[in-house]
Design a binder for these strands. Structure first.
Length: 551
RNA sequence: GCGCCCGUAGCUCAGCUGGAUAGAGCGCCGGACUACGAAUCCGUAGGCCGCAGGUUCGAAUCCUGCCGGGCGCACCA
């Protein structure tokens, strides 16, 4: 980050002096291959046409100016079609370690978001049953995204939307009521589309235990309502607990029913009508979403007078923006992708830019055990719950797997593989790097070398290629976070951590720290290791994964 | 039929706001503990980046058309 900023600034200055404009598409980034230096820039190729010169000639000019611009720049080479390959001197890189230690757990943070207010809404599963593994993926993603955004200068709030107003809730009540009557030995009819899981019977039993056997004699409308409310609350409590055990806590739990009851839905519908975005036809109220890129208009109020889910969802998003969010991020299961165009249309109809809503679609999780697929369906009551999976493999391992893939690719989650403490689950690889450093530090203290003492070490003793690799990687961390935030892609962070851990393990194998011989060198290396440990901690914290002192 | 996502090494996947010989882990094969934790490290082999066109000085990356897989196309949520 320091290096990139430094070079970019220098180049912008030089380009300006030459009377040329800095193109937004110009890039300054680490090249694929280390032999091309620390940073490569394509500016000469971008500007060649405007300047009326050959890319390589232009690059040569810039090269000369760049060398004069800063003593930190050790070398500049013109390569290939006109790349500028820039290398910084060791002293420049050594400052990375000092900076990390100085900033501690704040290292990596930036103000890239400039205080924009962002809401991340995720999981939001209907409270009709326990969370399954697919919800876990959304939970990990949303939670991690919120952590990353908070570290990069956004003001973030997390939220869970409870669909407590619709048909599914009635169905839940009916399912429980039927089971309750069954247990009480009364005639009952289980609803055709009802929820068949065993937890429904447990809920029925709980209600009977708490309310007494006479509950089964209630008139059915009262019984249904009791079961609906009790069932929903019990399931919500379970969901909250499961999320908590997974390291996920939403700040706001927002009720759909509250929107309906307070007349917010009606108000939003009225405002759509006022804007000419809604019209009546066939006894129903329609949203004119075709005006805004949807392929057909959508019903808001059914001819029966009932609200559709879309109506309350539009009102919900209206409410979000009224709460002052600049950007709303919704994390949905990929099976809802068809819903995106109408929601984007809705946001526009509400008078916002459609870019003020970002929908992240999370592909389904393919749950396996030893290569064999495990079937999942909430309705049929056959599934492996999130709680079961977390219990079996641990929250850290599960989270890391979820966060190691971009969200729009399918994910194979093999319980047996995830449990293995090998590179099949890189979480252990990264955590081990941290634990290893901790172990060295413990040994150092046993030998009477304190960490505080090491902080005054002479960093110029760090001069091997492996030292430089670690220093350079640490310098990249703030930018990794910023770019993960910008592209809403937490997996960038887990890939980065794997790379840093790899460099650390390599360093560890090649260079003795405590056995370095020279006292000064021992301290310098201890300091380097503490800086690496700090970055590992900061990165893992951004993922919501622990950084253990020993394993 | 229309729409969205995916198709990169034997397997699981990065890379996709175009850039220099396409990367990682696992697996295979071969090495490294009388040194701070071998949950580690080092090395070898392995690729018409689904196919065909197009744009460009330059395409895994952008555009078009096919092929294959997944998911959607309700006055359900």
């Amino acid at each position: 980050m320091r290096a990139k900023n430094h070079l970019e600034q220098a180049l912008v200055g030089i380009v300006g002096e030459m009377g040329l404009e800095w193109p937004t598409k110009a890039t300054v980034e680490p090249p694929k291959d280390k032999k091309f230096g620390d940073l490569a820039c394509n500016i000469a190729m971008m500007l060649a046409k405007d300047a009326g010169r050959k890319p390589r000639d232009l690059a040569e000019d810039i090269r000369q100016k760049l060398l004069k611009a800063s003593p930190d720049i050790a070398s500049v080479e013109v390569a290939g079609p006109g790349f500028l390959n820039v290398a910084y001197g060791p002293d420049f890189w050594r400052k990375s370690a000092a900076l990390v230690l100085e900033q501690g757990e704040n290292y990596g943070k930036s103000d890239a978001g400039q205080g924009r207010r962002v809401q991340v809404e995720y999981v939001s599963a209907n409270p009709t049953g326990p969370l399954h593994i697919g919800h876990g993926r959304g939970a990990a993603l949303g939670d991690c995204l919120a952590r990353i955004l908070a570290r990069t200068g956004f003001e973030v709030q997390t939220e869970y939307y409870i669909n407590d107003a619709g048909r599914q809730m009635k169905l839940l009540g009916a399912s429980i009521w039927a089971r309750l009557l069954e247990i009480a030995g009364k005639p009952s009819q289980f609803p055709e589309d009802g929820y068949k899981g065993n937890y429904i019977k447990d809920l029925a039993q709980d209600i009977l235990d708490n309310e007494g056997p006479q509950t089964a004699d209630l008139p059915s409308d009262q019984g249904l309502e009791l079961c609906r409310v009790r069932g929903m609350n019990a399931i919500l409590d379970g969901i909250k607990q499961d999320l908590k055990d997974f390291g996920v806590e939403h700040e706001i739990w927002f009720s759909e029913a509250s929107l309906v009851e307070t007349g917010k839905v009606q108000a939003t519908l009225d405002s759509l009508k006022t804007r000419g975005m809604a019209y009546e036809k066939d006894g129903a109220l329609w949203f004119k979403s075709t005006d805004l890129g949807d392929d057909k208009d959508r019903v808001l109020v059914k001819s029966s007078g009932d609200l559709t889910y879309l109506a309350s969802d539009i009102a919900y998003h209206d409410n979000k923006y009224q709460r002052g969010f600049d950007l709303v991020v919704d994390i949905w299961g990929a099976d809802h992708h068809g819903y995106v165009p109408r929601m984007k249309a809705a946001v526009e109809a509400l008078g916002r830019s459609r870019d003020d809503l970002e929908v992240i679609l999370v592909q389904l999780v393919n749950l396996l055990r030893g290569g064999e697929q495990i079937a999942m369906s909430t309705r049929a009551g056959k599934f492996e719950t999130l709680a079961d999976v977390v219990k079996e493999v641990g929250a850290d391992a599960a989270r890391f797997i979820f966060l190691s893939r971009k969200s729009d690719s399918h994910l194979d989650f093999d319980l047996e593989l995830v449990k293995q403490k090998s590179m099949d689950n890189p979480v252990y690889y990264v955590q081990y790097a941290h634990a290893r450093i901790r172990s060295v530090q413990r040994k150092a203290e046993e030998q009477g070398i304190s960490l505080d003492e090491a902080k005054s070490a002479d960093l110029s003793l760090l001069d091997t290629p492996e030292d430089m690799d670690l220093l350079k990687l640490m310098d990249q961390f703030p930018e990794v976070l910023a770019s993960a935030a910008k592209s809403l892609s937490p997996h960038l962070v887990s890939y980065y951590l794997r790379e840093l851990a790899q460099a650390l393990h390599g360093y560890y194998t090649k260079h003795q720290v405590l056995g370095a011989g020279d006292d000064g060198l021992v301290r310098a290396r201890l300091l380097l290791l503490e800086a690496v440990a700090q970055v590992l901690r900061n990165g893992l914290a951004a993922l919501g994964v622990s950084a253990p002192d020993s394993m």
